[in-house]
Design a protein around this nucleic acid. Sequence first.
DNA 1: ATCTCAATGTCATCCTGGTGTCATTACGTA
DNA 2: TACGTAATGACACCAGGATGACATTGAGAT
Lengths: 226, 226
Amino acid sequence: MNHSILIIDDDTDILKVLKANLELHGFGVITAESWMTGRDILAALNQDLLLLDVMLPDGDGFDICRTIRKERPLLPIIMLTAKDKISDKIIGLDGGADDYVVKPFETLELIARIKACLRRSKPTDEELTAVGDLTIDKKRRIVSIKTREIGLTPKEYELLCFLAAHRGEVAHREDIKKLLWKEHKIYSWSRVIDVHIRHLRQKIEADPSEPYFIITIPGVGYRFRE
Amino acid sequence: MNHSILIIDDDTDILKVLKANLELHGFGVITAESWMTGRDILAALNQDLLLLDVMLPDGDGFDICRTIRKERPLLPIIMLTAKDKISDKIIGLDGGADDYVVKPFETLELIARIKACLRRSKPTDEELTAVGDLTIDKKRRIVSIKTREIGLTPKEYELLCFLAAHRGEVAHREDIKKLLWKEHKIYSWSRVIDVHIRHLRQKIEADPSEPYFIITIPGVGYRFRE
DNA sequence: ATCTCAATGTCATCCTGGTGTCATTACGTA
DNA sequence: TACGTAATGACACCAGGATGACATTGAGAT
Protein backbone atom coordinates (compact mmCIF):
# COMPACT_ATOMS: atom_id res chain seq x y z
CA MET A 1 0.00 0.00 0.00
CA ASN A 2 2.21 2.80 -1.27
CA HIS A 3 0.50 6.06 -0.46
CA SER A 4 1.18 9.12 -2.55
CA ILE A 5 1.49 12.54 -1.00
CA LEU A 6 1.39 15.98 -2.55
CA ILE A 7 3.27 18.74 -0.76
CA ILE A 8 2.54 22.34 -1.59
CA ASP A 9 5.03 24.73 -0.02
CA ASP A 10 7.04 27.60 -1.39
CA ASP A 11 10.05 26.86 0.81
CA THR A 12 12.25 24.68 -1.38
CA ASP A 13 14.48 23.65 1.52
CA ILE A 14 11.56 22.22 3.40
CA LEU A 15 10.31 20.54 0.24
CA LYS A 16 13.64 18.82 -0.26
CA VAL A 17 13.92 17.59 3.31
CA LEU A 18 10.32 16.47 3.49
CA LYS A 19 10.40 14.70 0.17
CA ALA A 20 13.55 12.81 1.12
CA ASN A 21 12.23 11.82 4.52
CA LEU A 22 8.80 10.77 3.35
CA GLU A 23 10.21 8.77 0.48
CA LEU A 24 12.49 7.08 2.96
CA HIS A 25 9.35 6.00 4.78
CA GLY A 26 7.82 4.52 1.67
CA PHE A 27 5.58 7.32 0.50
CA GLY A 28 5.39 8.53 -3.06
CA VAL A 29 5.99 12.25 -2.98
CA ILE A 30 5.23 14.99 -5.47
CA THR A 31 6.00 18.60 -4.67
CA ALA A 32 4.67 21.91 -5.86
CA GLU A 33 5.84 25.40 -4.97
CA SER A 34 2.65 27.24 -5.69
CA TRP A 35 -1.08 26.76 -5.49
CA MET A 36 -1.27 27.14 -9.26
CA THR A 37 0.82 24.08 -10.03
CA GLY A 38 -0.41 22.22 -6.98
CA ARG A 39 -3.96 22.54 -8.17
CA ASP A 40 -3.05 21.13 -11.57
CA ILE A 41 -1.29 18.15 -10.01
CA LEU A 42 -4.26 17.55 -7.76
CA ALA A 43 -6.56 17.52 -10.75
CA ALA A 44 -4.32 15.30 -12.83
CA LEU A 45 -3.17 12.73 -10.29
CA ASN A 46 -5.00 10.89 -7.62
CA GLN A 47 -2.95 11.68 -4.53
CA ASP A 48 -3.82 10.13 -1.22
CA LEU A 49 -2.97 13.04 1.03
CA LEU A 50 -2.15 16.72 0.83
CA LEU A 51 0.40 18.61 2.92
CA LEU A 52 -0.53 22.23 2.50
CA ASP A 53 1.45 25.25 3.60
CA VAL A 54 -0.63 28.10 4.94
CA MET A 55 1.44 30.84 3.41
CA LEU A 56 1.74 30.53 -0.34
CA PRO A 57 2.78 33.24 -2.80
CA ASP A 58 -0.43 32.91 -4.76
CA GLY A 59 -3.11 32.10 -2.24
CA ASP A 60 -4.16 31.78 1.36
CA GLY A 61 -3.95 28.23 2.72
CA PHE A 62 -7.26 28.41 4.52
CA ASP A 63 -9.15 29.54 1.45
CA ILE A 64 -7.43 26.89 -0.61
CA CYS A 65 -8.34 24.26 1.94
CA ARG A 66 -11.99 25.17 1.75
CA THR A 67 -11.88 25.24 -2.04
CA ILE A 68 -10.40 21.76 -2.21
CA ARG A 69 -12.93 20.43 0.27
CA LYS A 70 -15.77 21.36 -2.02
CA GLU A 71 -14.36 19.28 -4.84
CA ARG A 72 -12.66 16.52 -2.90
CA PRO A 73 -14.44 16.11 0.39
CA LEU A 74 -12.58 12.92 1.21
CA LEU A 75 -9.00 13.98 0.53
CA PRO A 76 -7.03 14.09 3.78
CA ILE A 77 -5.42 17.49 4.25
CA ILE A 78 -2.75 18.40 6.77
CA MET A 79 -2.00 22.10 7.15
CA LEU A 80 1.61 23.10 7.52
CA THR A 81 2.57 26.47 8.87
CA ALA A 82 5.07 28.66 10.61
CA LYS A 83 2.42 30.60 12.40
CA ASP A 84 1.58 29.12 15.73
CA LYS A 85 -1.14 31.45 16.76
CA ILE A 86 -4.11 29.65 18.16
CA SER A 87 -6.60 31.48 16.00
CA ASP A 88 -4.91 30.13 12.92
CA LYS A 89 -5.10 26.62 14.23
CA ILE A 90 -8.79 26.95 14.81
CA ILE A 91 -9.43 28.35 11.38
CA GLY A 92 -7.43 25.54 9.88
CA LEU A 93 -9.30 22.78 11.62
CA ASP A 94 -12.68 24.37 11.11
CA GLY A 95 -11.87 25.05 7.49
CA GLY A 96 -11.83 21.35 6.90
CA ALA A 97 -8.21 20.41 7.41
CA ASP A 98 -7.81 17.04 9.06
CA ASP A 99 -4.78 18.03 11.06
CA TYR A 100 -2.45 20.88 11.70
CA VAL A 101 1.31 20.88 12.17
CA VAL A 102 3.41 23.83 13.24
CA LYS A 103 6.85 24.52 11.78
CA PRO A 104 9.43 23.76 12.83
CA PHE A 105 8.23 20.21 13.35
CA GLU A 106 9.81 16.87 13.98
CA THR A 107 9.65 14.75 10.88
CA LEU A 108 8.74 11.72 12.92
CA GLU A 109 5.76 13.45 14.41
CA LEU A 110 4.62 14.58 11.01
CA ILE A 111 4.87 11.05 9.70
CA ALA A 112 2.90 9.77 12.66
CA ARG A 113 0.18 12.31 11.92
CA ILE A 114 0.19 11.42 8.24
CA LYS A 115 -0.24 7.76 9.08
CA ALA A 116 -3.02 8.57 11.51
CA CYS A 117 -4.74 10.65 8.86
CA LEU A 118 -4.47 7.95 6.22
CA ARG A 119 -5.69 5.34 8.65
CA ARG A 120 -8.80 7.39 9.28
CA SER A 121 -9.57 7.90 5.63
CA LYS A 122 -9.84 4.36 4.35
CA PRO A 123 -11.93 4.77 1.25
CA THR A 124 -8.97 5.55 -0.94
CA ASP A 125 -8.52 2.49 -3.06
CA GLU A 126 -11.11 -0.14 -2.38
CA GLU A 127 -14.09 2.07 -1.93
CA LEU A 128 -13.24 5.04 -4.03
CA THR A 129 -11.78 4.99 -7.48
CA ALA A 130 -10.88 8.01 -9.51
CA VAL A 131 -9.61 8.13 -13.05
CA GLY A 132 -9.24 11.61 -14.40
CA ASP A 133 -12.56 13.36 -14.01
CA LEU A 134 -14.38 10.14 -13.31
CA THR A 135 -15.08 9.10 -9.74
CA ILE A 136 -16.63 5.88 -8.49
CA ASP A 137 -17.78 5.96 -4.90
CA LYS A 138 -18.67 2.40 -4.04
CA LYS A 139 -20.06 3.14 -0.62
CA ARG A 140 -22.57 5.55 -2.02
CA ARG A 141 -22.82 3.74 -5.32
CA ILE A 142 -22.39 7.07 -7.04
CA VAL A 143 -20.51 7.65 -10.23
CA SER A 144 -19.71 11.18 -11.18
CA ILE A 145 -17.82 13.15 -13.76
CA LYS A 146 -16.24 16.21 -12.21
CA THR A 147 -19.08 16.99 -9.86
CA ARG A 148 -21.94 15.89 -12.07
CA GLU A 149 -23.58 12.72 -10.88
CA ILE A 150 -24.22 9.97 -13.43
CA GLY A 151 -27.09 7.54 -13.08
CA LEU A 152 -26.10 3.99 -13.99
CA THR A 153 -28.15 0.82 -14.19
CA PRO A 154 -26.98 -2.23 -12.19
CA LYS A 155 -25.35 -3.88 -15.19
CA GLU A 156 -23.66 -0.68 -16.29
CA TYR A 157 -22.39 -0.06 -12.77
CA GLU A 158 -21.02 -3.57 -12.34
CA LEU A 159 -19.35 -3.39 -15.70
CA LEU A 160 -17.77 -0.05 -14.97
CA CYS A 161 -16.49 -1.21 -11.58
CA PHE A 162 -14.96 -4.28 -13.14
CA LEU A 163 -13.24 -2.32 -15.87
CA ALA A 164 -12.04 0.35 -13.47
CA ALA A 165 -10.78 -2.23 -10.98
CA HIS A 166 -8.58 -3.67 -13.70
CA ARG A 167 -7.80 -0.36 -15.28
CA GLY A 168 -4.85 -0.56 -17.59
CA GLU A 169 -5.32 -4.27 -18.18
CA VAL A 170 -7.40 -5.79 -20.91
CA ALA A 171 -10.72 -7.16 -19.78
CA HIS A 172 -11.36 -10.23 -21.87
CA ARG A 173 -14.88 -10.60 -23.21
CA GLU A 174 -15.13 -13.96 -21.49
CA ASP A 175 -14.25 -12.40 -18.14
CA ILE A 176 -16.86 -9.71 -18.54
CA LYS A 177 -19.41 -12.32 -19.48
CA LYS A 178 -18.56 -14.35 -16.42
CA LEU A 179 -18.86 -11.29 -14.22
CA LEU A 180 -22.17 -9.97 -15.45
CA TRP A 181 -23.95 -13.29 -15.89
CA LYS A 182 -22.53 -15.69 -13.34
CA GLU A 183 -25.35 -18.14 -13.86
CA HIS A 184 -25.33 -17.67 -17.61
CA LYS A 185 -28.82 -16.98 -18.79
CA ILE A 186 -27.65 -15.95 -22.21
CA TYR A 187 -28.15 -18.52 -24.92
CA SER A 188 -27.77 -17.11 -28.35
CA TRP A 189 -24.59 -15.23 -27.73
CA SER A 190 -25.47 -11.95 -29.24
CA ARG A 191 -23.66 -8.74 -28.61
CA VAL A 192 -25.06 -7.80 -25.22
CA ILE A 193 -21.70 -6.71 -23.88
CA ASP A 194 -21.23 -4.27 -26.72
CA VAL A 195 -24.62 -2.80 -26.01
CA HIS A 196 -23.84 -2.22 -22.34
CA ILE A 197 -20.47 -0.78 -23.25
CA ARG A 198 -22.26 1.58 -25.58
CA HIS A 199 -24.67 2.69 -22.88
CA LEU A 200 -21.77 3.24 -20.52
CA ARG A 201 -19.88 5.26 -23.09
CA GLN A 202 -22.92 7.37 -23.80
CA LYS A 203 -23.08 8.21 -20.13
CA ILE A 204 -19.45 8.71 -19.15
CA GLU A 205 -17.61 9.67 -22.32
CA ALA A 206 -17.46 13.27 -23.45
CA ASP A 207 -17.61 12.02 -27.03
CA PRO A 208 -18.95 8.44 -27.17
CA SER A 209 -17.70 7.98 -30.72
CA GLU A 210 -14.17 8.84 -29.62
CA PRO A 211 -13.96 6.96 -26.31
CA TYR A 212 -11.43 8.16 -23.78
CA PHE A 213 -12.09 5.84 -20.84
CA ILE A 214 -13.22 2.59 -22.43
CA ILE A 215 -10.92 1.50 -25.21
CA THR A 216 -11.84 -1.31 -27.57
CA ILE A 217 -9.30 -4.07 -28.09
CA PRO A 218 -10.57 -5.78 -31.23
CA GLY A 219 -10.93 -9.51 -30.95
CA VAL A 220 -10.18 -9.49 -27.23
CA GLY A 221 -12.29 -7.16 -25.17
CA TYR A 222 -11.95 -3.73 -23.61
CA ARG A 223 -9.40 -1.83 -21.60
CA PHE A 224 -10.06 0.93 -19.11
CA ARG A 225 -7.93 4.04 -19.20
CA GLU A 226 -5.21 4.09 -16.59
CA MET B 1 -26.12 18.66 18.60
CA ASN B 2 -25.13 18.20 22.21
CA HIS B 3 -22.07 15.99 22.31
CA SER B 4 -21.01 14.37 25.53
CA ILE B 5 -17.39 14.15 26.53
CA LEU B 6 -15.67 12.05 29.13
CA ILE B 7 -12.47 13.44 30.62
CA ILE B 8 -10.12 11.16 32.51
CA ASP B 9 -7.38 13.03 34.32
CA ASP B 10 -6.07 12.90 37.86
CA ASP B 11 -5.39 16.64 38.03
CA THR B 12 -8.56 18.05 39.59
CA ASP B 13 -7.65 21.62 38.71
CA ILE B 14 -7.49 20.80 35.03
CA LEU B 15 -10.70 18.84 35.29
CA LYS B 16 -12.50 21.82 36.79
CA VAL B 17 -11.27 24.28 34.19
CA LEU B 18 -11.90 21.95 31.28
CA LYS B 19 -15.34 20.98 32.43
CA ALA B 20 -16.36 24.61 32.85
CA ASN B 21 -14.97 25.63 29.48
CA LEU B 22 -16.38 22.73 27.54
CA GLU B 23 -19.79 23.12 29.10
CA LEU B 24 -19.64 26.76 28.15
CA HIS B 25 -19.25 25.59 24.58
CA GLY B 26 -22.26 23.37 24.73
CA PHE B 27 -20.73 20.00 25.51
CA GLY B 28 -21.99 17.64 28.13
CA VAL B 29 -19.04 16.80 30.35
CA ILE B 30 -18.41 13.96 32.75
CA THR B 31 -15.12 13.65 34.59
CA ALA B 32 -13.21 10.83 36.15
CA GLU B 33 -10.01 10.94 38.13
CA SER B 34 -8.88 7.41 37.52
CA TRP B 35 -9.01 4.76 34.85
CA MET B 36 -11.01 2.58 37.18
CA THR B 37 -13.98 4.93 37.39
CA GLY B 38 -13.47 6.16 33.84
CA ARG B 39 -13.86 2.65 32.53
CA ASP B 40 -17.09 2.19 34.42
CA ILE B 41 -18.52 5.41 33.03
CA LEU B 42 -17.46 4.45 29.56
CA ALA B 43 -19.25 1.15 29.88
CA ALA B 44 -22.38 2.65 31.38
CA LEU B 45 -22.84 5.75 29.27
CA ASN B 46 -22.52 6.30 25.59
CA GLN B 47 -20.08 9.18 25.42
CA ASP B 48 -19.18 10.77 22.12
CA LEU B 49 -15.53 11.49 22.81
CA LEU B 50 -12.84 10.72 25.30
CA LEU B 51 -10.17 13.09 26.59
CA LEU B 52 -7.55 10.85 28.11
CA ASP B 53 -4.58 11.87 30.20
CA VAL B 54 -1.43 9.90 29.59
CA MET B 55 -0.35 9.76 33.21
CA LEU B 56 -2.91 8.21 35.46
CA PRO B 57 -2.39 6.82 38.94
CA ASP B 58 -3.73 3.42 37.95
CA GLY B 59 -2.65 2.89 34.38
CA ASP B 60 -0.64 4.01 31.41
CA GLY B 61 -2.57 6.14 28.94
CA PHE B 62 -1.19 4.39 25.91
CA ASP B 63 -2.14 0.95 27.14
CA ILE B 64 -5.56 2.22 28.09
CA CYS B 65 -5.97 3.73 24.66
CA ARG B 66 -5.22 0.44 22.96
CA THR B 67 -7.53 -1.39 25.32
CA ILE B 68 -10.42 0.93 24.57
CA ARG B 69 -9.78 0.70 20.85
CA LYS B 70 -10.35 -3.02 20.93
CA GLU B 71 -13.78 -2.57 22.42
CA ARG B 72 -14.81 0.70 20.87
CA PRO B 73 -13.00 1.15 17.59
CA LEU B 74 -15.10 4.15 16.63
CA LEU B 75 -14.87 6.19 19.81
CA PRO B 76 -12.86 9.34 19.17
CA ILE B 77 -9.98 9.62 21.63
CA ILE B 78 -7.80 12.65 22.25
CA MET B 79 -4.69 12.13 24.33
CA LEU B 80 -3.85 14.77 26.86
CA THR B 81 -0.39 15.00 28.34
CA ALA B 82 2.32 17.07 29.93
CA LYS B 83 5.02 15.14 28.16
CA ASP B 84 5.91 16.73 24.89
CA LYS B 85 8.49 14.28 23.75
CA ILE B 86 8.06 13.31 20.15
CA SER B 87 8.26 9.62 20.85
CA ASP B 88 5.24 9.86 23.08
CA LYS B 89 3.29 11.61 20.38
CA ILE B 90 4.05 8.88 17.94
CA ILE B 91 3.08 6.15 20.33
CA GLY B 92 -0.13 8.00 21.03
CA LEU B 93 -1.16 8.37 17.43
CA ASP B 94 -0.09 4.90 16.45
CA GLY B 95 -1.77 3.47 19.50
CA GLY B 96 -5.07 4.52 18.05
CA ALA B 97 -5.62 7.97 19.48
CA ASP B 98 -7.27 10.33 17.03
CA ASP B 99 -5.38 13.34 18.21
CA TYR B 100 -2.87 14.49 20.73
CA VAL B 101 -2.71 17.66 22.75
CA VAL B 102 0.19 18.80 24.89
CA LYS B 103 -0.30 20.52 28.24
CA PRO B 104 -0.36 23.36 28.80
CA PHE B 105 -2.77 23.95 25.96
CA GLU B 106 -5.05 26.70 24.84
CA THR B 107 -8.64 25.78 25.54
CA LEU B 108 -9.71 27.16 22.19
CA GLU B 109 -7.31 24.93 20.35
CA LEU B 110 -8.48 21.93 22.28
CA ILE B 111 -12.07 22.74 21.44
CA ALA B 112 -11.19 23.12 17.79
CA ARG B 113 -9.53 19.72 17.84
CA ILE B 114 -12.49 18.19 19.63
CA LYS B 115 -14.82 19.56 17.00
CA ALA B 116 -12.59 18.33 14.22
CA CYS B 117 -12.50 14.89 15.82
CA LEU B 118 -16.26 14.75 16.23
CA ARG B 119 -16.77 15.88 12.68
CA ARG B 120 -14.62 13.01 11.49
CA SER B 121 -16.19 10.43 13.71
CA LYS B 122 -18.92 8.30 12.22
CA PRO B 123 -22.44 9.53 12.68
CA THR B 124 -23.36 6.04 13.81
CA ASP B 125 -23.85 6.78 17.44
CA GLU B 126 -25.21 10.25 17.11
CA GLU B 127 -27.96 11.10 19.48
CA LEU B 128 -29.52 13.59 17.18
CA THR B 129 -29.61 13.52 13.42
CA ALA B 130 -30.77 16.31 11.20
CA VAL B 131 -31.04 16.23 7.44
CA GLY B 132 -32.68 19.24 5.92
CA ASP B 133 -36.01 19.74 7.63
CA LEU B 134 -35.98 16.26 9.10
CA THR B 135 -34.84 15.71 12.67
CA ILE B 136 -34.39 12.46 14.52
CA ASP B 137 -34.04 12.76 18.26
CA LYS B 138 -32.91 9.35 19.39
CA LYS B 139 -32.99 10.14 23.07
CA ARG B 140 -36.65 11.01 22.95
CA ARG B 141 -37.46 8.78 19.98
CA ILE B 142 -39.07 11.70 18.23
CA VAL B 143 -38.98 12.34 14.52
CA SER B 144 -40.10 15.67 13.22
CA ILE B 145 -40.25 17.70 10.05
CA LYS B 146 -39.59 21.36 10.70
CA THR B 147 -41.43 21.50 13.99
CA ARG B 148 -44.20 19.08 13.17
CA GLU B 149 -43.84 15.81 14.99
CA ILE B 150 -44.22 12.59 12.99
CA GLY B 151 -45.55 9.41 14.52
CA LEU B 152 -43.64 6.35 13.38
CA THR B 153 -44.20 2.68 14.08
CA PRO B 154 -41.28 0.68 15.54
CA LYS B 155 -40.32 -0.84 12.20
CA GLU B 156 -40.55 2.49 10.44
CA TYR B 157 -38.45 4.13 13.12
CA GLU B 158 -35.77 1.45 13.06
CA LEU B 159 -35.63 1.62 9.31
CA LEU B 160 -35.36 5.38 9.28
CA CYS B 161 -32.61 5.37 11.90
CA PHE B 162 -30.66 2.80 9.97
CA LEU B 163 -30.91 4.72 6.74
CA ALA B 164 -30.11 8.01 8.42
CA ALA B 165 -27.16 6.56 10.32
CA HIS B 166 -25.65 5.55 7.02
CA ARG B 167 -26.88 8.57 5.18
CA GLY B 168 -25.11 9.00 1.92
CA GLU B 169 -24.19 5.35 1.70
CA VAL B 170 -26.26 2.67 0.04
CA ALA B 171 -28.25 0.47 2.34
CA HIS B 172 -28.29 -2.93 0.69
CA ARG B 173 -31.62 -4.75 0.79
CA GLU B 174 -29.90 -7.61 2.56
CA ASP B 175 -28.62 -5.28 5.26
CA ILE B 176 -32.05 -3.82 5.83
CA LYS B 177 -33.49 -7.31 6.03
CA LYS B 178 -30.90 -8.30 8.58
CA LEU B 179 -31.59 -5.20 10.61
CA LEU B 180 -35.37 -5.40 10.73
CA TRP B 181 -35.70 -9.15 11.08
CA LYS B 182 -32.66 -10.51 12.84
CA GLU B 183 -32.10 -13.63 10.79
CA HIS B 184 -35.61 -15.10 10.62
CA LYS B 185 -39.38 -14.67 10.54
CA ILE B 186 -39.98 -14.04 6.88
CA TYR B 187 -40.73 -16.97 4.61
CA SER B 188 -41.96 -16.08 1.21
CA TRP B 189 -39.66 -13.23 0.58
CA SER B 190 -42.20 -10.78 -0.57
CA ARG B 191 -41.80 -7.06 -0.70
CA VAL B 192 -42.09 -6.14 2.96
CA ILE B 193 -39.19 -3.75 2.79
CA ASP B 194 -40.77 -1.85 -0.06
CA VAL B 195 -43.97 -1.56 1.91
CA HIS B 196 -42.24 -0.09 4.95
CA ILE B 197 -40.29 2.24 2.72
CA ARG B 198 -43.55 3.36 1.22
CA HIS B 199 -45.08 4.01 4.63
CA LEU B 200 -42.01 5.97 5.65
CA ARG B 201 -42.12 8.01 2.47
CA GLN B 202 -45.78 8.77 2.96
CA LYS B 203 -44.95 10.13 6.37
CA ILE B 204 -41.72 12.05 5.83
CA GLU B 205 -41.69 12.99 2.18
CA ALA B 206 -43.37 16.14 0.96
CA ASP B 207 -44.26 14.30 -2.24
CA PRO B 208 -43.99 10.51 -1.75
CA SER B 209 -43.99 9.92 -5.49
CA GLU B 210 -40.97 12.18 -5.87
CA PRO B 211 -38.89 11.13 -2.84
CA TYR B 212 -36.35 13.59 -1.53
CA PHE B 213 -34.96 11.74 1.47
CA ILE B 214 -35.16 8.07 0.55
CA ILE B 215 -33.67 7.40 -2.84
CA THR B 216 -34.16 4.07 -4.59
CA ILE B 217 -31.10 2.35 -5.99
CA PRO B 218 -32.56 -0.19 -8.39
CA GLY B 219 -31.21 -3.67 -7.89
CA VAL B 220 -29.37 -2.72 -4.73
CA GLY B 221 -31.42 -1.01 -2.08
CA TYR B 222 -31.96 2.50 -0.84
CA ARG B 223 -29.90 5.51 0.05
CA PHE B 224 -30.71 8.28 2.47
CA ARG B 225 -30.18 11.85 1.42
CA GLU B 226 -26.98 13.31 2.75
C1' DA C 1 -63.12 -14.02 27.11
C1' DT C 2 -64.13 -10.52 23.10
C1' DC C 3 -63.50 -6.19 20.73
C1' DT C 4 -60.73 -2.75 18.59
C1' DC C 5 -57.17 -0.70 16.46
C1' DA C 6 -52.73 -0.20 14.97
C1' DA C 7 -48.76 -2.55 13.16
C1' DT C 8 -47.08 -5.75 10.19
C1' DG C 9 -46.91 -9.05 6.33
C1' DT C 10 -48.91 -10.90 1.82
C1' DC C 11 -50.73 -10.56 -2.55
C1' DA C 12 -52.34 -8.83 -7.22
C1' DT C 13 -51.67 -5.34 -10.38
C1' DC C 14 -49.50 -1.63 -12.78
C1' DC C 15 -45.87 0.43 -14.96
C1' DT C 16 -41.32 2.04 -15.91
C1' DG C 17 -37.01 1.50 -17.55
C1' DG C 18 -33.39 -2.11 -17.62
C1' DT C 19 -32.03 -5.75 -20.48
C1' DG C 20 -31.41 -8.68 -24.51
C1' DT C 21 -32.11 -9.39 -29.62
C1' DC C 22 -31.61 -8.23 -34.16
C1' DA C 23 -30.80 -5.77 -38.55
C1' DT C 24 -27.99 -2.48 -40.36
C1' DT C 25 -23.98 0.30 -40.76
C1' DA C 26 -19.11 1.40 -40.04
C1' DC C 27 -14.46 0.07 -39.49
C1' DG C 28 -10.11 -2.29 -40.00
C1' DT C 29 -7.29 -5.65 -42.18
C1' DA C 30 -5.74 -9.22 -45.33
C1' DT D 1 -12.29 -6.27 -52.81
C1' DA D 2 -14.22 -9.37 -49.11
C1' DC D 3 -14.49 -10.77 -44.43
C1' DG D 4 -14.89 -10.47 -39.55
C1' DT D 5 -15.78 -7.75 -35.76
C1' DA D 6 -17.57 -3.62 -33.43
C1' DA D 7 -20.84 0.28 -33.28
C1' DT D 8 -25.36 1.83 -33.72
C1' DG D 9 -30.49 2.30 -33.69
C1' DA D 10 -34.79 0.26 -33.07
C1' DC D 11 -37.57 -2.58 -30.55
C1' DA D 12 -39.72 -6.32 -27.70
C1' DC D 13 -39.92 -8.21 -23.35
C1' DC D 14 -39.73 -8.72 -18.69
C1' DA D 15 -37.91 -7.88 -13.82
C1' DG D 16 -38.18 -5.19 -10.13
C1' DG D 17 -40.18 -1.45 -7.61
C1' DA D 18 -44.48 1.23 -6.60
C1' DT D 19 -48.98 1.00 -5.26
C1' DG D 20 -53.52 -0.34 -3.28
C1' DA D 21 -56.19 -3.65 -1.01
C1' DC D 22 -56.47 -6.96 2.26
C1' DA D 23 -55.13 -10.65 5.84
C1' DT D 24 -52.95 -11.56 10.06
C1' DT D 25 -51.02 -10.56 14.33
C1' DG D 26 -50.73 -8.70 18.91
C1' DA D 27 -51.50 -5.48 22.68
C1' DG D 28 -54.84 -3.00 25.37
C1' DA D 29 -59.27 -1.98 26.85
C1' DT D 30 -63.67 -3.54 28.36
